[in-house]
Design a binder for these strands. Structure first.
Lengths: 193, 193, 193, 193
DNA sequence: CATGAATGAGGCTTCATTCAT
DNA sequence: AATGAATGAAGCCTCATTCAT
């Protein structure tokens, strides 16, 4: 309201958040091919209004990706993975992922595309995860016959699928988190193999 | 259809198969939004020719889905799951899935859409899988604290993710199959929990 | 409209003038396709405010056209073309046109569209110009082998192009005016032909 | 028709030419803001078909610019300006411009934008023109009190305006060409000044 | 049968315009 | 009176699909 700040920028941060949430929902459900119209409708605004907040489709997806990543980053940081033992660490990590279920589901649909700063994902998400799992391998708590990289794939693969169940409402976030943690660590086998 | 197979959609079955393969490859890599042009190019034919084999996009995807399902169905039938114990059964099942990695990857990208006869999936794929896993639960070889439905989700979730590694050439089908089997049954935990 | 000028479109006449000037500048430079946002920005006001002064784009362009025409009309009237000989008359006419260079440039970009009252242009601009030139033809000071209408086209055509140089700052209004006058009357040829 | 030349390119050169002609007509009349739909309609084809020949609007305008430039270039080259005296040279130059009236009119509407290779315009059009006019100045056939650059502006300014008359059908190309040549060289003044 | 060419429908984006503060 | 926010219409472009050779 000073003297001159005409046009551009500002616009309510609340609406922006609503749009990102709507986009997350829509993309989580219908996949990356969801249209701008779908998102606008889900956010309860007109298509043209959507463009006031995000100048184009890519900007929206970048924004969504970035918000999802921020969530994940925050949750993981708050989990203080390196202050606990590996098993507890995996449990916390799972809760971190399932806490932003819808956004992560959307993120998964978009693969690596739209990453604003790919290094962020690497540094704040993958690195902590790898560190945790590597620690487990080194300590003998995790299998050493499975390469670290596959540990990561398996774990995030489980997240990806089970999060779909959460988004569909078939499972609660807590239950889902516990399930993945448990299955990841013990498998579904009951006894020897 | 003796010598003169006229009537609708006869056309060379060989080309048809090539098209389906091309579609599977393209969809497995670029997702369901791959265009008819992409598929035609991958199959080495013109767009218009593609339409001689599949009258529209949906028909192609139904055809692909159906081919993938047929593969899966055949592989699972050949695995004779009910003639072996549960642990061996899971191993065979995994091999069955990874044997048609690319097609299954495409199938996964398309979710339930395009299922010609949903009952087929239910009867020839899911039913045997459930039967196998239920048998495991009943016999105490699989965890009874995880509902059957989640067993299925976890297992196919692992297939879905790891198959991506196979399609990307980062893992061989055999190794991938063994990995999933082992992780599914034992998890990645090394000791008790 | 004494002290309390209410009724439609009163609003500050000063701002209105600024807007028209801004529009003239923008249209002279970027052509008729300049957007309302461009004009608002150039006028240093918000888009919505612009609409308080001109209810729609056409109204703005009509306003601009009309202002440009008014300028031209005034300048031409002040030139008292019929009180001087033809050669001096052409010189005065040129100065009249170049005096509102930017507005005339904008006018040229818009062609005949947006003329509020086409008769005005005809009566107060074209008529005096034709009268002047016809007088020249009749007196033998201008070529009689070129139809009057083409005299007009050639002269205004020269104005249109050379005014662009003025708007771009490559030529001063006085110099430009002298150039066109001289070229119009003598051409660029140095000797007989 | 060899073995493989699928998609892209080729497409009838005749249609391409028709499109460029249609675009020239439409742009000459309605200005650069003419829509792709306008052009398609003028060419008697569907909008989507237009995109088979020109992948986007810019490509079309570049193509048109390039065609106009080619015309001009050819005509100027064929005029062999440097083999004749300056006065004849100007006459030939004018004919060269008016020979592709519509295309040049369109070119003028688009200003410098869309020039594929700006050097081409410089080297094959402006350079010969400047050379001719400079020769005239040096020989005393053209006025030396007007800078070369203004000679060029005046001449092309006359072309631009008078070509409009040709496009509108108010003047034939030959007459227009003679008019501009004559006015450029002698002005419209009949006697001394 | 195969294919180059043509097209309608639908998604993205901009812009003139309106609304509510 | 001024402005930030919201929107419908219209233009660009892609893609599934059809047609004619």
């Amino acid at each position: 309201m000073g003297a001159q700040e005409r046009e551009e920028g500002a616009v309510s941060a609340g609406v922006r958040r609503e749009i990102v949430d709507a986009a997350a929902r829509v993309i989580a459900e219908r996949g990356e091919s969801a249209s701008m119209a779908d998102v606008a409708a889900a956010a309860g605004i007109g298509r043209a209004t959507l463009y006031r907040y995000f100048p184009n489709r890519e900007a929206l997806l970048v924004g969504l990706t970035s918000a999802a990543l921020a969530d994940l980053t925050d949750n993981i940081a708050a989990a203080e993975l390196d202050s606990v033992d590996v098993l507890e660490g995996v449990a916390r990590l799972s809760r971190a992922f399932f806490r932003s279920a819808t956004r992560y589901a959307a993120l998964a649909h978009m693969r690596e595309k739209y990453l604003d700063k790919p290094a962020e994902l690497e540094r704040r998400v993958l690195a902590p995860v790898r560190e945790l799992l590597q620690r487990g391998i080194d300590s003998g708590e995790l299998r050493e016959d499975v390469p670290l990289e596959l540990h990561v794939e398996v774990l995030t693969g489980l997240y990806e699928r089970v999060i779909r169940l959460v988004v569909d409402g078939r499972l609660g976030a807590e239950g889902a988190s516990a399930l993945v943690t448990s299955v990841f660590l013990r498998g579904v086998g009951a006894g020897r193999t």
